[in-house]
Amino acid sequence: MIPKLIIHNSISLDGSTTGFEANLDVHYKLLSGYQPDAIIVGSNTARTGTQFFCEIIPPEEELDFKKPEIQPDDPRAYWLIADSRGILEGLMHVFRRSEYSKDVIVLVSEKTPEGYINYLKERNYDFIRTGADRVNIRHALEVANERYGFELVVSDSGGVLNSILLEHGLVEEISLIITPEIAGRNGTNLFRTLEKSGTRLELLKNQIVEKQYVHLVYQVLKE
């Protein structure tokens, strides 16, 4: 079974994920309200996000090689990071140390470098290996449901991963926080790599947050 999947993003008025200052407090408050079992993120988004956790990447310590002890009542979500190319080697401890995640589960493919797989094994990271070249997201989500019991996963990622999720019909809802800014020509479209057109949506919720942000939630209608 595939977990319910929600795309959650903060965007500018003209549909960009960059070129404006998102309100991270609002973004993560609304995201945490879903109480997801896991948050899925692409490797490029994760690498860019390291700047929010630390100005300089700290060296690894002994504890970074150990799987954290998770309490049964821990409300935090796991992070599912898709990284078939292994670009996060040397950075994974930044995410494991985050106060916002229980631990990290890495999604890799058959083409993922063995050196990166060994890096994950040496540090006791769980990983799901599926897909010949790139990660087979559908199968990875099925495994996450079977292995960890994940029932709700929220995508907090950029346009590439979100486009893949939509392209493969995996998304049930889209949650958008509209920021009152216009990014213009330097912006990056939310679904910039989505090839298919005509995805139909039904508005489920519209809410004004902190008097200036609009939170829209849509159901993705099945074809």
Rank of each mutant, 00 (worst) to 15 (best):
Ser157Asp: 05
Asp73Ile: 06
Asn145Tyr: 14
Gly131Pro: 05
Tyr116Ser: 10
Arg138Pro: 05
Arg147Thr: 13
Ile137Arg: 03
Leu63Met: 13
Ser109Leu: 10
Val171Glu: 00
Ile128Phe: 05
Ile87Gln: 09
Ser157Ile: 06
Asn124Phe: 11
Val153Met: 00
Asp103Cys: 09
Ile81Gln: 04
Glu61Arg: 15
Arg134Gly: 15
Leu91Phe: 15
Gly90Phe: 02
Pro113Thr: 10
Pro68Ser: 06
Glu110Thr: 08
Leu120Glu: 02
Arg47Phe: 05
Leu170Lys: 07
Gln51Gly: 09
Glu122Arg: 14
His139Glu: 15
Lys66Cys: 10
Glu173Tyr: 00
Val153Asp: 05
Leu107Tyr: 06
Thr112Leu: 09
Glu60Pro: 00
Pro75Val: 11
Leu107Gln: 03
Ala144Asp: 09
Gly158Asn: 01
Arg123Lys: 13
Tyr78Pro: 00
Asn118Ile: 11
Gly86Cys: 03
Ile174Ala: 01
Asp73Cys: 02
Leu141Arg: 07
Pro58Tyr: 02
Gly115Asn: 11
Phe127Gly: 06
Lys111Glu: 15
Gly149Thr: 07
Leu161Ser: 06
Ile70Glu: 03
Arg47Ala: 08
Lys102His: 04
Glu173Gln: 08
Asp103His: 12
Asn145Phe: 08
Ser155Gly: 05
Ile164Lys: 08
Arg96Ser: 03
Gly49Glu: 14
Leu152Trp: 01
Val160His: 08
Pro75Asn: 04
Asp133Ala: 14
Ile164Asp: 10
Val104Cys: 14
Glu151Lys: 15
His93Ser: 04
Leu63Asn: 12
Pro68Trp: 03
Lys102Val: 09
Asn145Arg: 14
Ile174Gln: 00
Lys66His: 02
Pro68Asn: 07
Leu141Glu: 04
Tyr100Leu: 10
Ser157Met: 06
Glu172Cys: 01
Leu63Trp: 13
Phe127Met: 07
Phe65Ser: 11
Asp156Val: 05
Arg76Lys: 07
Glu142Asp: 13
Lys121Val: 13
Tyr148Asp: 02
Ile70Gln: 03
Arg147His: 12
Arg134Trp: 15
Arg47Gln: 13
Lys67Ala: 10
Asn124Lys: 12
Ser155Lys: 04
Ser163Gly: 14
Thr112Phe: 13
Thr130Gln: 11
Glu69His: 14
Gly159Asp: 08
Pro75Ala: 07
Tyr100Ile: 13
Arg96Gly: 02
Glu151Phe: 02
Phe150Thr: 06
Tyr125Phe: 14
Glu173His: 00
Gly49Pro: 08
Ile177Glu: 03
Ser84Cys: 12
Arg76Met: 04
Arg85Ala: 14
Glu60Tyr: 03
His93Ala: 11
Leu176Thr: 09
Tyr125Ala: 08
Ser163Lys: 05
Gly131Arg: 14
Met92His: 01
Asn118Asp: 15
Met92Ser: 11
Tyr125Gly: 02
Val153Ile: 13
Pro113Trp: 08
Asn162Gly: 04
Asn124Glu: 12
Asn118Leu: 15
Val135Phe: 12
Ile81Pro: 01
Thr130His: 13
Thr130Ser: 15
Ile174Cys: 00
Ile128Glu: 07
Pro113Asp: 12
Gly115Lys: 08
Gly131Asp: 11
Ala140Met: 13
Val153Trp: 04
